[in-house]
Design a binder for these strands. Structure first.
Lengths: 188, 188
DNA sequence: CGTTCTAGGATACGGTCGTATTCTATCGAA
DNA sequence: TTCGATAGAATACGACCGTATCCTAGAACG
């Protein structure tokens, strides 16, 4: 057998380059060529790991979702409910340059999914995991209607993230809105 | 003087065609040629009304914002607060095919604005008008912290709209989340 | 009625796109 | 050490992009 490369690691690197590019310059600046350049490869090398651009997009979307889930797991589970919720949402919001790119990519995928059933399925799967984790946490704290409350929190989080992308100067007042939402949605 | 056409009406028609196309097939399917075809014109005719694609996009984004504001004004102002808020949000959510396209276009513009300062400005202006109208309504009903509450409601609305785009089957549970958010954010 | 200006269509140009194909160098197994 | 499979680069192709330019037909005025 001939020389081998760590395929999944290579795919991960290429997908990460796509997320960086999509986050910093927009999903419409993503092409096989630009992703190849952003990952320090030739376009032909990218083609070896992804048959088509669609496969590359799906992989990157999945990768992005996994990052979110992993980041949410780093929040201290012993925190009081409201502080825990605030910390969870803050891991998503684009409040610094690094997270801004990740959030921008995430939301670009979400909008793209509106016209792309396979991408939509990836998004729904991620949403379900986030929802279930949130709902469990809410139920454990005795919040009434944990299911709808979890969905409301996800919606607030996504809505704030979206708006922060084009109105980063409103961060202060939007964080006040987040606090108000958490305060009213959870028991004292 | 030679034959004249109603320029602003023509521009409005072309912008409407762009919104339709962006909503139904996605913003990346929007090109000068496809917009021309969707509005029953030749690409050259579109060029007569918009110097560049960017100008066309800006105009359409503005048009989309005006539609939202106009639609919000159709909600009966004598309604009790919670019913009024619910009605206002429902005018935005993509719960039928017609509104789905409008919302999809709107959110596509929002994500696009993350990397496009001129589009971002249009979005911020629309958001401010919606926010002020909401805050006035909330303050009149005696809601504490009307400003942050208005921002929270906008975030919930956008977040739900985004998710409904790729998870239309979750409409029932997402409407329950909306009701929960409105119930907790407003005084009884 | 003839002149003039414009609406709108047609066409062309350089660039980028996704993808298929081809080539070469190199590593792993025999 | 030889051989075969693969990594990766290079190239090619047809399609579409935004935009500039040119052309034609017709309505509005003198």
């Amino acid at each position: 057998m001939p020389r081998i490369a760590d395929r999944s690691e290579q795919r991960r690197q290429i997908g990460a380059a796509l997320l960086r590019l999509a986050g910093e310059e927009g999903l419409d600046q993503v092409s096989v060529r630009t992703v190849a350049a952003a990952s320090g490869r030739s376009p032909g090398a990218v083609q070896k790991y992804f048959r088509s651009k669609e496969e590359l997009l799906l992989f990157a979307s999945q990768l992005s979702g996994e990052r979110i889930e992993r980041r949410m797991q780093t929040v201290d589970p012993t925190l009081p409910l409201r502080q825990a919720l605030r910390a969870l949402v803050l891991t998503i919001l684009p409040l610094d340059e690094e997270r801004r790119a990740e959030t921008a990519a995430q939301l670009a995928f979400a909008v793209h999914a509106a016209h792309h059933p396979r991408l939509a399925e990836v998004r729904r799967r991620v949403d379900r995991e986030v929802h279930d984790a949130l709902a469990r946490r809410l139920a454990a704290a005795g919040t009434p209607e944990p299911g709808p409350t979890a969905d409301a929190l996800i919606a607030v989080s996504d809505g704030l993230a979206l708006r922060l992308l084009y109105a980063p100067g409103d961060a202060d007042s939007l964080l006040a809105a987040l606090d108000r939402a958490i305060a009213t949605l959870t028991p004292p």
